[in-house]
């Protein structure tokens, strides 16, 4: 094992142990993520029932239910909350010192800590939802589809981590970013297709939103898995996702190089 992978795997192991210190809390928070799916589904069942229609903008209710189950499976993986929280707390309270005395990159530590917190949710929520749904709906799962879906999860995870880092970096200027992060998170959920599929937006806006990085956190992987967009379209979006990953990565790097110098750990 290389030196870097040994360091980060040690951090992952202790992060997991820390996460599992209170088992009931882990179990209950996993159910919270399930509720996210259930609420989305119930809202759309109500919408379809009251509109007395089988299809809205070409999407049937069963397709939307599957879409929101996939969104429910993706959300525990593709959210930035812990990266922003760790950064904001660290900058405000000074615990960033503890991370900077380690022989690892600050961003790398944030990602691993965040990921170790997500693993239990992925195993208890995401995997059962995705596998169960594929079995129950008799989905035609191909190797290409699974590979593409996994690739989008990786791209989405990198995008959300860089975005979390960029939002968290605002704490260098503003000290407390909880309110801003909360607002941006909800905005992203809407324009990323986490609350309404992007196909429901007017054509021009919908097409534009699909090309933005936020779509890779919800709509693109969910629509690929459920077949809401064609495989060809899904494959065509891979370079877009990779380009956004690179752009956000560069922005995050530049921000750290400039703002890291503003660390102000005084009196703590």
């Amino acid at each position: 094992m290389s030196s870097a992978s040994r360091k980060y795997s040690s951090l992952l192991v202790i992060g997991l142990k820390n996460e599992m210190a209170y088992r009931w809390d882990v179990l209950i928070s996993s159910f919270m993520w399930l509720l996210y799916s259930v609420i989305g589904i119930l809202v759309w069942v109500a919408v379809y029932s009251f509109s007395h229609t089988n299809s809205i903008m070409g999407l049937s209710l069963p397709t939307l239910i599957i879409y929101f189950i996939v969104i429910g499976a993706l959300t525990p993986m593709l959210n930035w909350s812990s990266i922003v929280d760790i950064m904001a707390d660290g900058i405000k309270g000074g615990s960033i010192s503890r991370m900077l005395i380690r022989p690892m990159s600050y961003f790398g530590q944030l990602v691993i800590i965040d990921f170790s917190g997500s693993i239990t949710n992925i195993l208890m929520v995401s995997v059962p939802l995705l596998v169960g749904m594929a079995i129950l709906t008799n989905m035609h799962v191909t190797l290409l589809l699974v590979s593409l879906f996994l690739l989008y999860i990786v791209i989405g995870y990198m995008i959300v981590s860089f975005m979390g880092f960029i939002v968290g970096s605002m704490a260098f200027y503003l000290t407390d970013v909880y309110g801003i992060a909360f607002s941006i998170n909800y905005g992203i959920m809407i324009i990323g297709g986490g609350i309404v599929p992007l196909t429901f937006f007017p054509n021009g806006i919908g097409h534009l939103l699909v090309m933005l990085p936020f779509a890779f956190l919800a709509f693109v992987p969910a629509a690929t898995y459920t077949g809401t967009i064609s495989l060809a379209t899904a494959v065509g979006l891979v370079p877009v996702g990779l380009a956004w990953t690179a752009i956000l990565g560069i922005v995050a790097y530049i921000l750290w190089k400039r703002m890291g110098k503003m660390i102000n750990v005084v009196g703590v």
């Binding site: 040690s10 951090l11 192991v13 202790i14 022989p103 690892m104």
Partner: peptide, 28 residues
């Protein structure tokens, strides 16, 4: 580095031995 009681290295919810194991891993 020891930061007194302000920024402990020890994981609050885990026994110290887990932190020591972690240190072993990151410093090889």
């Amino acid at each position: 580095v020891v930061f007194g009681n302000t920024h402990p290295q020890l994981y609050w919810d885990l026994p110290p031995i887990d932190t020591f194991d972690y240190i072993k891993g990151i410093y090889g």
